[in-house]
C-alpha cells in the first residue's frame, strides 16, 4: 500500500490517524503518569486536587512509610513464592499432558483432548470449587493457590501445537539409540522447545503474579496474603466495600498517597520486565491462534 499515490485525502487521513493514535497513547499511559506524580506528592496537594502530570510538594516520605511496613514485604515475598511454586507445578503438568496429546498415534488421544477442552466450555463453577477446596483442607495453605489452577487449557493447546510441529525423525533416531519415552522427552524434545517453554513460563508466571481472587477466596490469614490482596485491602476502604481488616489498610484507606505508592511498588516489577518479555507473549498468542 506504500506504493499508492499520496493524494491529498490520504495525507489528511494520515494526519487524523496520528492525532487519534497519539490520543490512544496518552489515554493508555496517563494513569501511570498520574500515579507516579501522586506517589511523590504531598498529601495536601493530592486532597486539594492539584496533582495530575507532575508531583506537587515532592517527597519520598510515603515510600519510606510503605516500605517500613513489614507486612508489605511478607506479602510481597508470598507473591514471589506462590508464583515460583505454582509456575513450576503448572509447567510440569502442562508439559507432560501436552507431550502426550501431541502423539497422534496414541490410542485414546481424542478422549484425552476432550477431557481438557470440555472444561473450557463448561466449568464447575465457583461454589462447588470452593466447597471442594475447603473439604480437601487446602484453605489457608499455599496449595489452595497453586493447585486449583495448575493447568490452563489455552497454554496446554499452545504447547501441544508446538510439540506437533517438531520433526519426528529426531525422536525416532533417539528411540533407535535406546532412549525410552522419558529420556526422549527430557533430552530431545525439551531442549528443542526452549522458546515455547520460555513463553509458557511467562504466561503462567504473569497470571499467578497477578492473581488475587484465589487468595481472596481461600486465604484469611494476613501473613499468607499475596501483595495483590494487600493492595486490594488498601483500596477496599475507598469503595466502602467490606474490608478484610488489615491493620495499615484501615488507617490509611483515605490516604491517597499511600495507595499510590503501593500501586507503584506492586506494578514496578511488571513494568520493569515488560519491555523484554512482551514479544514472547505476542508469539505465544499467535501460536495459540493457529491452533484455535
Amino acid at each position: 500500500m506504500v506504493t499508492t499515490v499520496k493524494s491529498r485525502g490520504y495525507r489528511v487521513f494520515q494526519g487524523i490517524n496520528a492525532v487519534i493514535l497519539t490520543g490512544v497513547v496518552i489515554v493508555t499511559l496517563y494513569p501511570f503518569v498520574n500515579i507516579i506524580a501522586r506517589s511523590f506528592s504531598d498529601e495536601r496537594h493530592i486532597v486539594a486536587g492539584q496533582v495530575n502530570f507532575f508531583p506537587r510538594g515532592f517527597n519520598v516520605k510515603t515510600y519510606q512509610l510503605v516500605v517500613s511496613d513489614p507486612m508489605f514485604w511478607t506479602n510481597y515475598r508470598n507473591t514471589v513464592v506462590y508464583t515460583v511454586v505454582a509456575t513450576a507445578i503448572a509447567m510440569v503438568l502442562t508439559t507432560c499432558y501436552a507431550y502426550v496429546l501431541s502423539k497422534k498415534h496414541l490410542k485414546g488421544r481424542t478422549g484425552l483432548i476432550w477431557v481438557a477442552i470440555f472444561t473450557m466450555i463448561f466449568s464447575g463453577g465457583l461454589i462447588p470449587q470452593y466447597v471442594l477446596v475447603n473439604s480437601l483442607g487446602l484453605t489457608n495453605s499455599i496449595w489452595a493457590i497453586v493447585l486449583p489452577n495448575a493447568i490452563s487449557v489455552f497454554n496446554l493447546l499452545v504447547m501441544k501445537a508446538f510439540f506437533e510441529g517438531l520433526p519426528r525423525d529426531l525422536e525416532e533416531a533417539a528411540a533407535i539409540d535406546g532412549l525410552n519415552t522419558y529420556g526422549i522427552l527430557w533430552r530431545i524434545v525439551l531442549p528443542l522447545s526452549k522458546a515455547v517453554i520460555a513463553t509458557m513460563v511467562l504466561f503462567y508466571a504473569v497470571s499467578f503474579w497477578n492473581s488475587w481472587f484465589t487468595a481472596f477466596l481461600y486465604l484469611n490469614e494476613q501473613d499468607l496474603f499475596p501483595v495483590t490482596i494487600y493492595l486490594r485491602n488498601l483500596i477496599a476502604g475507598a469503595t466502602g466495600a467490606e474490608s478484610a481488616g488489615a491493620a495499615l489498610s484501615e488507617v490509611s484507606a483515605a490516604a491517597a498517597n499511600i495507595q499510590a505508592v503501593t500501586i507503584m511498588l506492586t506494578v514496578l516489577p511488571i513494568l520493569a520486565v515488560y519491555p523484554f518479555v512482551q514479544r514472547y507473549f505476542v508469539s505465544g498468542v499467535m501460536l495459540g491462534a493457529v491452533k484455535g
Binding site: 494513569p31 500515579i35 486539594a48 503474579w209 497477578n210 495483590t228 493492595l231 488498601l234 469503595t239 506492586t266
Partner: peptide
C-alpha cells in the same frame, strides 16, 4: 499485563474526588 487489582486501583485513583 496488569493485575485486576491494579486496574481497579488505577480506576479508583482516576475517579477519586481529588
Amino acid at each position: 499485563f496488569l493485575s485486576m487489582v491494579i486496574v481497579a486501583a488505577l480506576v479508583m485513583q482516576m475517579l477519586a474526588i481529588d
